[in-house]
Amino acid sequence: MSAVNGSPILEVRELDLYYGDAQALDGVTLAASEGEIVAIVGSNGAGKSSLIRTIAGIETQRRGMVRFRGQDIGGLPSHRVCELGIGQVPEGRQVFPSLTVRENLEMGAMLRRARARLAQTLEEIFELFPRLKERERQPAGTLSGGEQQMLAIGRCLMGQPELVMFDEPSLGLAPTIVQEVFHTIRRLHERGLTIILVEQNVAVSLKLAQSAYVLENGRIAMNGTGAELLADDRVRQAYLGL
């Protein structure tokens, strides 16, 4: 599908993941081309987070393949995957509450690929999120939910990823902040980042995405361009309540 735009930067094929006997992913196949936003939508427990965690190397699949820039990364430990340029903004923000904003950001740049340019990247992040600059010396736990999400995004960017996976970035945020988060994602897309966006906010993420997948019970139930899925009756009924 997305392979029409050239060879994919990320390729997932026939991925099976189990937690003990429970199957979380069942033959998941997807691809992301360089510079595109790929949305993965689905209800709670459909396997969205499992998919991200498997690509990130935190879970290990039982079958199937994950390829990044042609290299097989399935089974690599997470720190090696990060080192290749796959970043992750985990669900629920997960900043380090008692470390300062600056320390949080620096923690994101501990990868070998990013360490040397730390100071420069930090400046770029502060430009992108001026509010983080204002709160530089504050413990991250004292930030508002929206600010923490910005910090989590900034921290991920500190590692200079080429592909960023967002896990439910709008979860638990006020509507205006949600808009801001999606606006940020669009800006990162404009800068050329490849983005995988896992969201329950189906309408917005499908509008944003070039290609999209619907995950149901660990299986890809549908895929297409964002616009196609947005127009699909089944998607409209099941996820948009129309």
Partner: peptide, 12 residues
Amino acid sequence: EDEDAAQALGIN
């Protein structure tokens, strides 16, 4: 502070 987050950042 948060082991999952640390892992997500590529800390071994």
